[in-house]
Computed example of a mutant assay.
Amino acid sequence: MKKYLLSFALAFMSLSAFAQTDYEKIMTEKIAKIETCKTAEDFQTLANDFQRIGSKESSQWLPQYYAAFASIQKGRIMMRGGQMQDLDGVAAQAEKYLGMAQNLAGADNAEIHLLRKMAYSMRMMVNPQQRYMTDGARAGEELNIAEKLDPGNPRIALIKAEDTYFTPEQYGGSKTKGVEQFKAALAKFNAYKPKTSLDPNWGKAEAEYFISLPVEATK
């Protein structure tokens, strides 16, 4: 009887290991696609893919996190194209995924709070003058929470640099100061080690891009 129980236990462990390896393989493939997506439709497809993975791997927070991140990236492309009227819906979808991710990861996850900040900032861009004191304030709160939880996180430094760079000077922004903050973010990226190969590790290429711009482009 003990021999059968041992065989069953070993078989179960082997199946679990195989399933984990399969999960890691498909997640690695989908995460790599973040760098190759070019359009809002590409990111929507990727968000759907991560959501499907999350529905199967219901104990894992990262698929829902990446579904939210892909949705936010979709929204950022739409912002660049002037499609502000649709951003509330995109932010709502991202927030739905983040809620599911937070239920699994807990409330003290800096990466999730940072994406919440980005979603609120997206909502604010629909009407900055009207929403600065609501969605803008919530974005600031989420950023502060993320920074307190993980002050060495380079993505937090990156998003702070973005805010400085793109905010008009009359409201406290500065392209010159923003570039200096991008440099500080890059230093953090160079020193940062994600917990696992699947954990968030995006943003370094963006910091390098802004640092590489000609000086006149930052004025």
Score class of each variant (00 low, 15 high):
residue 185 A to E: 08
residue 185 A to R: 03
residue 185 A to D: 03
residue 185 A to S: 13
residue 185 A to T: 02
residue 186 L to A: 08
residue 186 L to S: 02
residue 186 L to G: 01
residue 186 L to E: 04
residue 186 L to I: 03
residue 187 A to I: 11
residue 187 A to Q: 12
residue 187 A to G: 00
residue 187 A to C: 02
residue 188 K to T: 06
residue 188 K to V: 02
residue 189 F to H: 03
residue 189 F to Q: 05
residue 189 F to W: 09
residue 189 F to P: 00
residue 190 N to D: 14
residue 191 A to Y: 06
residue 191 A to I: 04
residue 192 Y to I: 05
residue 192 Y to M: 07
residue 192 Y to R: 04
residue 192 Y to N: 05
residue 192 Y to D: 01
residue 192 Y to V: 05
residue 192 Y to K: 03
residue 193 K to V: 10
residue 193 K to W: 10
residue 194 P to T: 04
residue 194 P to R: 09
residue 194 P to I: 07
residue 194 P to A: 09
residue 194 P to G: 11
residue 195 K to H: 06
residue 195 K to C: 08
residue 195 K to R: 11
residue 195 K to Q: 14
residue 195 K to Y: 03
residue 195 K to M: 12
residue 196 T to M: 13
residue 196 T to I: 07
residue 197 S to P: 00
residue 197 S to G: 09
residue 197 S to Y: 11
residue 197 S to I: 15
residue 197 S to Q: 15
residue 197 S to V: 15
residue 197 S to C: 10
residue 198 L to F: 09
residue 198 L to V: 06
residue 198 L to C: 05
residue 198 L to N: 04
residue 198 L to A: 06
residue 198 L to G: 04
residue 199 D to W: 14
residue 200 P to K: 07
residue 200 P to D: 05
residue 200 P to G: 06
residue 200 P to N: 08
residue 201 N to H: 15
residue 201 N to L: 11
residue 201 N to S: 15
residue 202 W to R: 02
residue 202 W to A: 05
residue 202 W to L: 08
residue 203 G to Y: 02
residue 203 G to H: 05
residue 203 G to K: 04
residue 203 G to N: 04
residue 203 G to S: 09
residue 203 G to L: 06
residue 204 K to I: 01
residue 205 A to M: 12
residue 205 A to I: 10
residue 205 A to G: 09
residue 205 A to V: 12
residue 206 E to N: 11
residue 206 E to F: 09
residue 207 A to P: 01
residue 207 A to R: 01
residue 207 A to L: 10
residue 208 E to Y: 05
residue 208 E to P: 00
residue 208 E to D: 07
residue 208 E to A: 09
residue 209 Y to P: 00
residue 209 Y to W: 13
residue 209 Y to H: 15
residue 209 Y to A: 10
residue 209 Y to K: 13
residue 210 F to K: 00
residue 210 F to P: 00
residue 210 F to W: 12
residue 211 I to R: 06
residue 212 S to A: 12
residue 212 S to W: 03
residue 213 L to A: 02
residue 213 L to M: 10
residue 213 L to P: 02
residue 213 L to D: 01
residue 213 L to Q: 06
residue 215 V to W: 07
residue 215 V to P: 00
residue 215 V to C: 03
residue 215 V to S: 15
residue 215 V to F: 14
residue 215 V to Q: 15
residue 216 E to V: 12
residue 216 E to K: 11
residue 216 E to T: 10
residue 217 A to K: 13
residue 217 A to V: 09
residue 217 A to N: 11
residue 217 A to W: 15
residue 217 A to C: 10
residue 218 T to S: 11
residue 218 T to C: 11
residue 218 T to L: 13
residue 218 T to D: 08
residue 219 K to F: 14
residue 219 K to P: 00
residue 219 K to G: 12
residue 219 K to T: 08
